[in-house]
Design a protein around this nucleic acid. Structure first.
Lengths: 107, 107
DNA sequence: TCCTTGTTTCGACGTCTGTCGATACAGCGA
DNA sequence: TCGCTGTATCGACAGACGTCGAAACAAGGA
């Protein structure tokens, strides 16, 4: 990010991912999934801790999934979600660069 | 993030910062500022590369500033903006954790 | 002092987003 | 087969967001 300015396409792509992270409920969902035993969580584990309705949780999970931040799979009755670390790592690296700009590893 | 689930307040706070990053124009602005010579840029350096009007750029800069991601100062005629690395580092660390959860820093 | 240039604020507009209740779909067990 | 539980989709609504042009404010020079 420090190295050279983001292209329009790249910026638009990244903005979608950040947008998925820009809601407190989604951030907590992601955290719950990531911190859940086994690295994945069933939707039924995720609806309890929130004050919003189940359809709303389902909507937020869809946003996270379409942003490429989590994966999901139905196993029998339940649907499981897990974090996709590579996507988060990409965002993390982007934000890390400015603090690191003397270290020169960017691009 | 992996370590334990985000509290409601923390999540709300972080969500504001991510929201500031969730627009392509703001992402490119941040990138332009970070990559600008001296680590800071005048507004007049930032309006050219975009297709949006100058008041819109000013609006986006305000969003970045209120999110705590950039600082600004008027020096004579011009207003300069610079990135606040600590804020980006905080977000970066948060997103880095999931990819690192086998590395042993987690609980 | 007045004018010019750089920047922010204001008011308005259309679109996007988060939320809900109702409903549909999927799989399991009786 | 039917009914039950878990999850997703639909349609609607209020509020937030990105954008603009017009106008206000700030600083410097003639």
């Amino acid at each position: 990010m420090v190295r050279e300015s983001l292209g329009e396409e790249t910026a638009a792509d990244l903005a979608k991912m950040f947008k998925a992270l820009s809601d407190p409920v989604r951030l907590r969902l992601l955290s719950l999934i990531a911190s859940h035993e086994g690295g994945e969580a069933c939707v039924c584990d995720l609806t309890g801790p929130f004050d919003v309705s189940q359809p709303t949780i389902s909507h937020h999970l869809k946003v996270l999934r379409e942003a490429g931040l989590v994966g999901s799979e139905r196993r029998g009755t339940w649907v499981y979600y897990w974090v996709l670390p590579a996507a988060l790592a990409r965002l993390s690296a982007l934000l890390q660069a400015p603090a690191d700009n003397t270290a020169g590893s960017a691009r």
